[in-house]
Design a binder for these strands. Structure first.
Lengths: 198, 198
DNA sequence: GGATAGATTTACCATCCGGTTGGTCAACTG
DNA sequence: CAGTTGACCAACCGGATGGTAAATCTATCC
């Protein structure tokens, strides 16, 4: 099998590492654990990724790509802004219920784990979080231009606050092992948007 | 110095560990680092706290106590509910600006660090988070009973969502190294409460 | 002054972790 | 067939970590 990079192994490593990093965090997962779970020896894992950080960054990009797909799908099949926001929170609540309130948001978890002490990871996390804020702001902005919201509505501020609300609710849900906070958050977000509708 | 527990040393350990745990997380701080920063040897630290976990739990209680004092002080000097919520977010924003958007909320950080894999810590974090939710809900409830809010206002739901919003905003602020998300969150919280005011 | 008990330190241990070394084996290429 | 290359692995290394053992030091009480 010379001359061709083993793409199947790389993909398997990425998927495995993503799963482990998601459920336990970056620092709590050793390269040996990733290797074992992916069915190979640690030294071979280092053959594919020259350092743990390079693997972490690759997993982040991999995860962001699949998250972007999910977002695009929701955006494509949503017709009114309030229903769209509502659906985002409902999907998040469903995921939390299904996972018995563990996991939460991969990027939110990494944000807190790496924000003060792992600058490369923090930058990448911030980059993706920023991108999603901009995406949501643009979505709201389009509706704002049609006159859907009152004039003083600020799409960027609303987008930033709604994503904060979602991340915070997932944090609360995870910590208290109850999906209730996500429901409360949905209620707040929807009530706000209803109130500022024209 | 026999026959009397050395309370001064215990307090110094608690303060030092709190500072280190706050800025770097639980797992990233070694017992040796705590001991050094507190001006003693590691083995002596184990003389005061028989395990790392016992120290962590003690620091959590210590931190919760000082946080409760801060909350009580804010509650005592606040007269209208919207102004009170506004002030909570403004104080959080000021803290973030002062710390160059590092640190955030000690309990929020620990929630994500320990929720999936450190049950004793998770329980204590959840316990304190729950207590603050109840405290805020009672605060809103008192005003609700005076007719300040419209009838459909749900103090517990609002309290849970507002704290989620605050935690999420601190997470965003920390990850993006900008205090802006906290301002956006304040805007959302205040706008919601204004909208549901009677 | 001697016994007592907490306080402090030095030295140590087992384990784990990221990463390296040195090498085997099979497949492809010229 | 000879040489090259990618995939894979056992063994190892240096450093850090949580935790322990045992000795010493020091203040107090009788």
């Amino acid at each position: 099998m010379a001359r061709t990079a083993n793409l199947e192994a790389r993909q398997r490593i990425l998927d495995t590492a993503h799963r482990l990093f998601y459920t336990s965090g970056l620092n709590a997962v050793s390269m040996d654990a990733v290797a074992s779970a992916a069915g190979m020896k640690k030294a071979n894992l280092f053959h594919y990724y020259p350092s743990k950080e390079s693997l972490e960054l690759a997993v982040l990009d991999h995860a962001a790509a699949s998250m972007n797909e999910r977002i695009a799908r929701v955006a494509r099949t949503t017709f009114d802004p309030i229903g769209g926001i509502q659906r985002i929170f409902e999907e998040a609540a469903a995921v939390m219920r299904q996972s018995h309130c563990s996991g939460g948001c991969f990027f939110g978890n990494l944000a807190l784990e790496s924000a003060d002490g792992n600058e490369p990871i923090r930058r990448k996390v911030a980059e993706h979080l920023q991108a999603w804020t901009t995406l949501l702001a643009a979505f709201l902005e389009r509706w704002h231009r049609t006159g859907y919201f009152r004039e003083e509505f600020q799409p960027h501020v609303a987008a930033q606050a709604i994503l904060s609300l979602l991340e915070g609710a997932l944090l609360f849900s995870k910590a208290s092992k109850s999906p209730e906070p996500v429901d409360s958050a949905k209620h707040l977000a929807v009530a706000y948007l209803e109130a500022i509708r024209a």
